[in-house]
C-alpha cells in the first residue's frame, strides 16, 4: 500500500457537493471518505460549518481547482494561506491539485488548461509544487489532466512530465483513470502504457468519473465533464490500474447533473467491491 494513503483509507469515497451536504450528514452513507473542492470552503459561514459536521463522520480530502500550479507567474500567497488554514481547520487526510494552469497575468480563467510538455514548464511546475508543499507543510498529490489539445512546442510525453514532477518534488500522483482514458482516446495514446509508466509507489489516490462524447468536425472527442456515471471502459481500465497499484483510495467524482446521493453511493460500492477483490488477491 502507498504510504500516502495513511489517513484517507484505501476504500471508495465520493465527492461531496452542496446539494448532498444535508443527506450525507443525516444518512451517513456507507462510503469510506469524502472529497471536496478546496475553494468552496475558503470563507466561513454555513458551508464551512456543514463541512465540519461531515468531518465528524468521515475523513476529508481537499481537492483544489484554483491554485494554478502551472502558472509561469508563480503562486498566489493568499490562496496558499487559505488552503493551509482550511487544511488545519478540518485536518484533511489528503491535499491535491492539478497538473495544469488557470491563471495568467492576474486573470483566473476558470478551467484546468493544458501545459506545453517542455523542460521550462516542468521547472515551473516543480518550483510551484515545492512552494505549495512548503506553504502547507505536507506532501500533496498532483492529478493528471484530461487533454483535448497539444502544443507544437512539447518535447516529452505527459506521463514523463508527471513522473518527473513527482520525482523532483517528492509529491505524489492522484491518478485520474477517466482522464487517462479520455486523453488516450483523444490523442491516440495507449492508456495501459500510461499506467505502466507511473511508478507504483507514488500513486496516493485514484479518481473515477464520467465523460461525454462529442463530434468535432469529422472527429470524435471525449470531454471530461463529470456529468454522467463512470463508463464501462473506464471501469475496465480501473481494474487494470488496481492490479498494478494495489488498493488505493478511490473517489467517485460528479460535478454536473448531480444525481441523488444513492446513485453516487452505488458507484462507490462498485469501486469498493473491486478494491476488496484486489486486496483479497494480494493477500492470497
Amino acid at each position: 500500500m502507498s504510504p500516502l494513503a495513511a489517513t484517507i483509507p484505501a476504500s471508495a469515497g465520493i465527492g461531496l457537493r452542496f446539494p448532498h451536504h444535508e443527506s450525507v450528514v443525516r444518512d451517513r452513507p456507507p462510503v469510506g471518505w469524502l472529497e471536496v473542492h478546496t475553494e468552496n470552503y475558503m470563507g466561513g459561514g454555513a458551508p464551512l460549518l456543514a463541512l465540519e459536521v461531515a468531518r465528524r463522520d468521515y475523513p476529508i480530502s481537499l481537492h483544489g481547482v484554483g491554485l494554478s500550479l502551472g502558472s509561469a507567474d508563480g503562486l498566489d500567497p493568499t490562496h496558499l494561506g487559505r488552503i493551509r488554514d482550511l487544511d488545519r481547520r478540518i485536518e484533511a487526510g489528503l491535499v491535491s491539485e492539478h497538473l495544469s494552469w488557470s491563471i495568467a497575468d492576474g486573470v483566473y480563467l476558470g478551467d484546468l488548461l493544458p501545459l506545453p510538455m517542455t523542460e521550462e514548464a516542468l521547472a515551473v511546475v516543480c518550483a510551484n509544487v515545492a512552494r505549495f508543499q512548503d506553504a502547507i507543510g505536507r506532501r500533496v498529490l498532483i492529478e493528471n489532466p484530461s487533454s483535448y489539445l497539444r502544443y507544437r512546442h512539447s518535447t516529452m510525453p505527459e506521463r514523463e512530465f508527471l513522473v518527473a514532477t513527482a520525482e523532483r518534488t517528492g509529491c505524489g500522483v492522484l491518478l485520474d483513470v477517466n482522464n487517462v482514458f479520455v486523453s488516450a482516446r483523444n490523442h491516440g495514446w495507449d492508456a495501459d502504457a500510461y499506467l505502466e509508466a507511473i511508478p507504483v509507489s507514488i500513486v496516493g489516490e485514484i479518481h473515477l468519473a464520467g465523460h461525454s462524447v462529442r463530434r468535432f468536425g469529422n472527429q470524435t472527442i471525449r470531454i471530461d465533464d463529470h456529468g454522467s456515471p463512470v463508463c464501462e471502459a473506464v471501469w475496465s481500465l480501473y481494474r487494470r490500474a488496481l492490479r498494478r497499484f494495489g488498493p488505493i483510495p478511490t473517489l467517485i467524482e460528479r460535478d454536473n447533473h448531480i444525481p441523488p446521493l444513492p446513485a453516487l453511493v452505488a458507484e462507490a460500492t462498485r469501486a469498493q467491491a473491486l478494491l476488496d477483490e484486489v486486496r483479497h488477491a494480494d493477500a492470497a
Binding site: 481547482v65 491563471i103 486573470v107 483566473y108
Partner: peptide
Amino acid sequence: HPPPGGCLNDW
C-alpha cells in the same frame, strides 16, 4: 472584470 484569483467566491 475577469476573476483576479482562483477562488470564484471572491469575484
